Structure formats: C-alpha cells, structure tokens
Amino acid sequence: MKKDLKTRLKRATRLFWLLLIYVVAALVWWFVALELQNRQMYSLQLYHLETTVSREQQPSLYDAELARIREGHHRNTIKYAGEGVVFLGLILLGAAYVFRSIKQQILLQEQQENFVMAVTHELKTPIAIAKLNLETLLKHQLDEQKQRKLIQMSLEETKRLDFLTNNILVSSQLENKNYKLNKEEIDFSSLLKDRVSEFSQRFPDRIIHSDISDGIDVLGDPLLLQILINNLIENALKYSERKDPVTVTLRKENDAVVMRVMDEGIGIAEEERSKIFLKFYRVGNEATRKKQGTGLGLYLCEKIAKDHNADILMTNNNPKGSIFAVKFNS
C-alpha cells in the first residue's frame, strides 16, 4: 500500500514538473516572440522615418521622431519583461501551492489508510478476545473464580472498544462542528480522581501516582473532559515501560487550573513536537510505531482544550519522558 502511494506521488511529481516546464517554456517563447515583434516594429518605424523625413533638411523633426520611436521601443521592452516576470512569479507561486496541495493530499490519504488499518486492528482484537472468553464460558463448566476472570477480561476489552469509538465519533463531530457543548460547573478534582482510579483498576501492574488538590471546579463538558483525561493517561501508559511510573497532578496556579500527566517513557524528539497534535499523526520512531494507536488522541486533546479556553503544552520530563500540561484559564 505504501509502495503504491509512493509510486503515485512520483508519477504526480513527474507530471507536475513536465507541465510546469511546458508553461514556463511557453511563457519564455511568448516573451521572445513579443520582443522580436517589437524589434521588427522598431526597424519598420526607423525605415519609415528615414524615407519620409530628411535628417539634413529637418534635423529637429527627425531627432524628435527618432527619440519617440526609441522611447516606444524601450517602453515596450520593459512592459513585456515586466509582464513576463509577473506572470512567471504567479505561475511559480501557483505551482508551489498546487505541488504542496498534491503532496499533502497524498500524505493525508496515506495517514487515513494507516488510520483505517489501525482502527480495524484495534476493533478486531477486543472483539476477538471477548468472543473467545464468552465461547469459553458457554462451552466449559468453569469455577466461579475463572468465570469472574474471563468476564472481567471481556469487560476490559469492551472498555477499550468504548474508548476507541468515543474518540472516533467525537473527533468527527468536533471537526464537522456537529457536537453541541454541554458546559456545566464540574468538580474536576473528583472527575480526575475517578479516571485515575479506573486506570489503576484496568492496569493493576502499573504504577500510577496522583497528587490532586480537592475542590477544584472548571466549566466544561463532562464527556469531553473525560476523553481528554483518558487520552493523556492512556498515552503516558502506552509510551512508557511497565516499571516506569505515571504521575497525575492537579493544582491551582495563580488564576489558572493546571492538570499535568507525567511519564518516564521514551519522550518525544524535538523535531516532532510541532506535529504531535495533528490529526492521524503518530510519532515516527520505530519504538512508538510498534504501539497500537490511531493518531487521534492528542489531536482530540488539543481540540477539547481549545473548546474549554485551555492551553495544552508538552515539555520534557527530567531525566526522561514527557509532561503534558493542560492549563484552564479563568
């Protein structure tokens, strides 16, 4: 699939350059033809002047007409050159815009195809696990402890499905401006504690620390804020080792409410930080591409933050890892 996209990009690039060379060549030929015509007119006017006005008998008239002819010739040359430069500039600007648009469209298509593949994989995995667990429960007489374990595993997989479908649906609705924000005064401290508690239950083998100040309220949409928290904690767990802790904090700082999610994982390279909030974008090193994901999480986080008059920033966590901070402005 990627090979096919690269082939199409090369083909489109070759066609683009051929068309651009043809247009520029046509423009140059147009200028040359006009300049040749201008010189022919200049020669004809000089010939007409020589045959109609005597330089010896009417020197002042002859000099005046000669100056007028030369000025017209010079003015036309400047006019054609100026028009040629303007047209060439417009052609090059348009060509650069078209080339950039083609490249972006092909890259976006590649990202969308990768997204579809990732979503398909992430949908099939929990469905397959839940189906296997339910079939096991039906076919075998298991003791209560094993039944509870299989049911719990199935519930975890349905939560993964719910998390994924929420991301996809909300992303589409926010992008198309079909989502109606239901802002209300929310006990953000309680919401964040609930999210941390659920992740601790889902991942009992992971270390999740929290330092959440009580009684902090924000004005916002409960579902969107829950998705924001889920995505940040999910990313922190996904891109750090099992032994590495994840820390979630919430504090009031001056007139703002600041939530931070800190991990001690692989971090994000400097050159990729400007791209991490783009739709479908996934960090490009091999260590992270092996992780499951759709490239929607951080894109959604930034959209949700903006809708709540908040800023989201990423910084390094010393000695390693990342810190994502969401600052709710009053």
Score class of each variant (00 low, 15 high):
N329S: 13
I186D: 03
C301L: 04
A95D: 07
A26W: 12
P319T: 07
L49F: 04
L66Y: 05
L313S: 11
T247R: 06
L192Y: 02
E35T: 15
Y97P: 02
N176L: 14
R195A: 15
L46N: 04
N38E: 06
L191T: 00
T249G: 04
H121F: 06
V258D: 03
S101W: 13
I266H: 09
R70V: 00
F203S: 03
L237W: 09
I229E: 03
T315L: 08
G284A: 09
E83A: 10
K291R: 15
R260S: 14
M153E: 13
I151E: 04
Q40N: 13
H121Q: 14
N235W: 00
I208D: 02
D214S: 14
K139D: 15
Q292P: 08
S43W: 02
I151M: 14
Y299A: 00
K3Y: 10
P245K: 05
T120H: 05
I78P: 05
G293R: 00
V218T: 06
K290G: 04
I129C: 01
Q152D: 09
D162N: 14
S197L: 15
T158W: 00
E35F: 08
E110Y: 09
K327I: 14
M117T: 12
S200N: 03
K10T: 05
L137N: 00
Y179M: 00
V261T: 11
I233S: 01
R273M: 12
L155G: 15
Y80G: 07
L61S: 12
V32S: 05
I21K: 06
V28G: 08
I233N: 00
C301W: 01
H48F: 07
E50W: 04
K146L: 12
V326S: 05
L137V: 10
K275G: 01
V23H: 09
H121G: 06
V170R: 08
D194Q: 15
E264T: 11
N309G: 01
K320P: 07
A64L: 13
L44R: 07
R282Q: 08
Q111K: 15
F31Q: 07
K303V: 00
D63Q: 15
R14P: 04
A256K: 12
R251P: 02
D263T: 10
L123A: 04
V119D: 00
Q105G: 12
I323H: 08
E271P: 01
L92W: 15
V170F: 14
S60M: 11
D217N: 11
Q141N: 13
S43K: 09
L93S: 10
L228P: 01
G265H: 02
I212G: 09
N254Q: 14
V98Y: 05
R251C: 05
Q104E: 12
K146Y: 09
E175K: 06
E271W: 05
K159I: 12
E271H: 11
N76F: 05
K252I: 02
R55M: 10
S197G: 07
G265T: 15
L219A: 04
L5W: 00
E302V: 03
T52G: 05
P126R: 04
K238Q: 14
Q58M: 09
A26C: 14
G84L: 04
H140Y: 15
R195C: 05
L237Q: 03
N231K: 08
G321W: 02
R14S: 11
I212D: 08
V24D: 00
E83K: 11
L92N: 05
A325Q: 09
N38W: 03
